[in-house]
């Protein structure tokens, strides 16, 4: 209490982004309230109905689009589904010459590279967002925040090119060579240092989703009511305790939302990953080994896929990727929903 009383509170509360109503209890009755049934209500009602109909049909269009995509992909992948059944998901042979297709290495590669990316990017992003919203002086914070948002707008092929010309040689001659030589007995660092491979893909994905996660987390942190922080500080909490109790726990659903968006980008990212992952459909425990993702195999092989079953198998890979994205998003939404609910119950 004494420790914080001699300096102004800068816990982000003075930023103008916080809605004015956030500090008070229930909002005062707005000017519009109680005036609802205005004169000429009938025509207004019609306008409302039309408005609702139009916007509703837009929303319905999204549903139609998703259903349409799922249907078309399912129909187009029927030959492969009929031929391989569930083996498609558990077999790791991908042989266009023999017409044998199994998507397990791609499934594995997509999940592992996205997981690696989250593992690196989430703590970093939360650190960036915490610093910018809670600790940094205002002017540098605003400039840095702008730069983070700028990073999110860089096209993925630029990341890929940077990765292949700058990051890969650095990885190959630096950390990977060392890991391979000194920790090569561990399965996750076994094998020669190619530069390209799962590690490079995970790193580039981490760099790509970092701005997304930190920019959204930053907004979420800034929206935490100032009163929360003041309450914690008033109880004698340190800066770290305030951040952890008042900001991070309050913002948890928002952070999860940010992570979901980042994960979505990592799962579907094609160009940069294709350039860096090494494109070998094999499952290896080693982070130095090359891998393959679902998005990459589609991008690589779709244009030259001449056989019908081959094409159908590639479309089934797309269907699996689609299903995986839906599944992970639903799972993550459920997580958000349950944390929000738990928070409400506690309150």
């Amino acid at each position: 209490m004494i420790a914080v009383s001699d300096k102004p509170i800068r816990a982000g509360g003075r930023r103008s982004r916080i809605p004015p109503g956030a500090f008070s209890g229930p909002p005062p009755p707005g000017p519009s309230q109680g005036k609802e049934p205005a004169a000429g209500g009938r025509s207004r009602f019609n306008a409302d109905a039309i408005f609702r109909g139009i916007t509703g049909s837009f929303a319905g269009f999204v549903l139609l689009l998703v259903a349409g995509m799922a249907t078309v992909m399912t129909i187009a992948s029927m030959p492969a589904i009929r031929k391989f059944g569930w083996h498609f998901l558990v077999s790791s042979t991908w042989d266009p010459v023999q017409d044998q297709y199994g998507a397990l290495p791609f499934l594995f590669g997509t999940l592992l590279s996205s997981f690696l990316a989250l593992l690196i990017a989430v703590p970093l992003s939360l650190g960036i967002a915490t610093f910018l919203s809670e600790l940094a002086p205002e002017r540098p914070a605003r400039i840095l925040g702008f730069l983070v948002e700028l990073l999110a707008a860089i096209p993925s092929v630029i990341y890929g090119l940077w990765g292949i010309f700058v990051m890969v040689p650095m990885l190959r001659n630096g950390p990977q060579a060392w890991l391979s030589a000194h920790l090569g007995f561990l399965p996750i660092f076994a094998g020669p240092a190619y530069g390209v491979g799962m590690m490079a893909a995970g790193l580039i994905l981490a760099i790509m989703i970092l701005p997304t996660i930190s920019a959204i987390s930053l907004e979420v942190f800034r929206a935490v009511p100032r009163a929360q922080r003041e309450a914690a500080l008033a109880l004698g909490a340190t800066r770290w305790e305030t951040t952890r109790m008042a900001v991070l726990s309050y913002a948890r659903p928002g952070i999860l939302g940010a992570v979901i968006l980042g994960l979505g980008r990592a799962l579907g990212e094609t160009m940069a990953v294709t350039m860096l992952i090494g494109n070998r459909p094999a499952i290896s425990a080693s982070l130095l080994a090359p891998g393959y993702t679902m998005a990459s195999v589609i991008a690589n092989e779709f244009s030259e896929a001449t056989g019908d079953l081959y094409l159908s198998a590639l479309i089934e890979v797309a269907l699996v990727l689609f299903g995986l994205t839906v599944l992970l998003n639903v799972g993550a939404r459920y997580l958000v929903w349950s944390t929000v609910k738990r928070g409400e119950n506690r309150a």
Binding site: D95, P96, V97, T274, A305
Partner: peptide
Amino acid sequence: VGKNTSVNWPAGLGAKGNEGVAGQVKGL
């Protein structure tokens, strides 16, 4: 292995396009 526009390679790394292979060989 056989012949095709893409095959099940027994060894190595895959790079996208002629420029990708050229770049990879040049760097490694």
